[in-house]
Design a protein around this nucleic acid. Sequence first.
DNA 1: TTGAAGTATATGCTCGACGCATATATTAGG
DNA 2: CCTAATATATGCGTCGAGCATATACTTCAA
Lengths: 171, 171
Amino acid sequence: MRNMNVFGALALLLADEIVRSASAQAPEVGPASSALALLHHEPGLSIRKLAAGVALSHAGAVRLVDRLVAEGLVERRGHESDGRARLLHLTAAGETTSMAVLQARNATLARALTVLNDDEVAMLGSLSERMLRALLGNEEHAYRVCRLCDYSSCRCCPVDEELGSREAARA
Amino acid sequence: MRNMNVFGALALLLADEIVRSASAQAPEVGPASSALALLHHEPGLSIRKLAAGVALSHAGAVRLVDRLVAEGLVERRGHESDGRARLLHLTAAGETTSMAVLQARNATLARALTVLNDDEVAMLGSLSERMLRALLGNEEHAYRVCRLCDYSSCRCCPVDEELGSREAARA
DNA sequence: TTGAAGTATATGCTCGACGCATATATTAGG
DNA sequence: CCTAATATATGCGTCGAGCATATACTTCAA
């Protein structure tokens, strides 16, 4: 019970600090930093998917993109075959800001792990991966979970693997 | 690097789910659930301390308490010697709601730990405690970190211990 | 080919939570 | 007592969010 409480408190502390440090690099607090990170990972995202990834209503996502476009960080491009769709892309400035967001998140996590040695980090990673896989929901949920992840440094993302293996299990 | 990413994603997932499940028991989303949990742990809290605990401005905390009072969950009592201060207390209904909030948080955490055996939970707790102590800031920060903790089931709270040992080290 | 239903995005409107600055009440110190 | 400090409350404006609806486009069927 005490272990559970301690772990829960750490999760809250870390998540707060991750979100805080990440959004300090974005033009506004809230979901903007997640949006920039998601667009870095998956350029050409639609508004709908973005809305799911940042846990906003569709209208909220439209307004968020409006603001990011006004800031010069994002641009709406037309879809070549579907005239309704807009492909969201980061501008050069958006890429820079997005990298700063990811960097801030990584620094926060790295700071937390400094008190552990390599073996302990590996152990923590292993335990975390099992919990992560067990708690993972559908694809929309996966978007939200990885909304601030640094994909470029995450080989064999367990979230993707887990979704893939479930898909395979259904066949 | 992969371990770090996985751990960070898990922290985000867990914190989101903890906050979501806890605030589902409160009359509104946002800091209300934290306020109820904090008041359960420390009856007679002042508005100022509450504001720090839920990361709100002073004015925001006043309005939050206004709403909780209107819901019949909290009451403002006068301080016996200081006429300025108000002692915040949970009503009977507030206690009930607060217990539901803590219960929801505990259930979420328990669900995450089901994939680990006892030894692994102990290991996770040990690693978490070291990170928690290292990342802990001042007393206000401690209030925020423990804002959803179930103190009644957390013997020897490492946050209190850590703050105490630092105090002792200064003497 | 045309019309209805479905999908993707955008907007009008309103609400409500928040913060800043300020006001009120009370205490403490000189 | 008078001033400064402390604890709480309020006037006011801002802004992000959601609901409902509008617009644009695609798909499918008759």
